[in-house]
Write a protein that binds this DNA or RNA. Structure first.
Length: 370
DNA sequence: TAGGCGTGGCG
DNA sequence: TCGCCAAGCCT
């Protein structure tokens, strides 16, 4: 990085010190964190909570994570408790948070740490990265925040802050190596954990994707994007590919007592091992008339409308059919879930939408089906 | 390595 | 309304 100082007007130490002074005053208070003043008193963060929160926060907003974090730490206060937990209980507790492979890897990781490391996490990034569900970002974050290791912690917030600070015009993801080097160059030896959290707080509250509050930014004197460009134009990103549409049918079978027929998805592919209502494969052509070939049993299936659900890589249009007064004995696949049990099932949001299309009183979905 | 993998909030 | 985005990982 010979060119590092050629196009900057501030030294790395000044960046870190300015940011840490800002963080001491303006840090967010979050359930898994200790404050800078607690840290100064020698209070250490709980590595279990740091790990759990970092995994939950992968591609997930802080607001969405808070309630799940509290639920998990109440049910399983230690990594030993989590390792001893039932897999299905963990999946049920995770339901609604998304990216379910995280929950499966969470359990695998807890088992490994208890078995191989005597219930204590390894304290360096390279060892942490060997564990399931822990990649470049999470290993560096745990090492820095829980164990005070000077690792460069680069997430989406840091990418935004760094590309603006240095006006990096290379598009993501090509710019990642450069971003990592620059982050490494400004990461301080003495408070790497606070520095990492400060960068993320800055990205989340000041250096936001839209309309950043540059007037309030502790780094505005050093920011090349602010000086020469429009910060909102950073980071530059490669163009996205368009999202295909898939079609399918879902069947909400209701017994006389209000129970809903559920089954378990396969252990491969999308939403693996989660609960679902019976349905067709998602690609099937619905030729305009009624597609009842995938129904769990013959009945008077009433069309309850079409729900739309956007996954990362495709858009799903699910036609929902509803039948009432079903005879439970005519089904030998899956299980009947009573109305007061449904909330505790491992149902992904797309399935709650489908059930809500047939029974709007059961699940309150923000954007109901048309 | 590029694509698979959820969900909810926001402008 | 809808595309974008949010503390990525795995294969």
């Amino acid at each position: 990085m010979q060119t590092l100082f050629a196009y900057r007007n501030t030294y790395p130490m000044d960046i870190a010190q300015s940011l840490l002074r800002w963080y001491d005053k303006h840090h967010r208070v979050l359930p898994w964190r200790i404050t800078p003043s607690q840290s100064a008193q020698g209070i250490k963060p709980d590595p279990y909570k740091i790990w759990l929160s970092e995994v939950m926060l992968q591609q997930t907003t802080v607001e969405a994570v808070k309630a799940y974090f509290l639920k998990f730490t109440k049910a399983w206060p230690t990594i030993d408790a989590l390792a001893a937990a039932d897999d299905d209980d963990i999946m049920r507790a995770w339901a609604g948070l998304g990216y379910y492979s995280r929950a499966r890897n969470l359990k695998k990781c807890a088992d490994l740490v208890v078995a191989d490391y005597g219930a204590g996490f390894p304290q360096n990034a390279a060892e942490l990265k060997k564990l399931p569900g822990i990649g470049d970002y999470t290993s560096a974050a745990i090492a820095a925040i829980a164990f005070n290791q000077p690792e460069p912690v680069v997430d989406g917030n840091v990418e935004r802050v760094i590309t603006r600070l240095y006006a990096i015009t290379t598009a993501l993801p090509q710019a990642k190596p450069q971003i990592r080097e620059l982050t490494e160059a400004i990461t301080p030896i003495d408070r790497p954990g606070d520095f990492a959290q400060a960068m993320m707080d800055l990205g989340a509250t000041i250096c936001t994707p839209k309309r950043p509050a540059c007037a309030l930014c502790p780094l505005n004197d050093s920011c090349l994007a602010l000086k020469d460009h429009d910060p909102e134009h950073f980071p530059v990103k490669a163009p996205k590919k368009d999202r295909p549409i898939r079609l399918g049918a879902a069947f909400v079978a209701e017994a006389g007592d209000g129970s809903i027929l559920l089954r378990k998805r396969t252990e491969k592919g999308l939403l693996q091992n989660m609960a679902e209502v019976p349905g067709s494969v998602w690609n099937s052509r619905i030729d305009g008339s009624t597609d009842l070939t995938a129904a769990p049993f013959a009945s008077d299936w009433r069309n309850a409308g079409v729900i739309t659900h956007i996954f990362t890589h495709f858009e799903l249009h699910l036609t929902v059919y509803h039948a009432t007064g079903a005879d439970k004995r005519q089904v030998n696949d899956g299980w009947w879930s009573a109305p007061d049990m449904l909330a505790g099932e491992a149902l992904p949001t797309v399935m709650k939408k489908a059930i809500a299309a047939a029974r709007p009183d059961i699940f309150k979905i923000r954007r109901p089906a048309k």
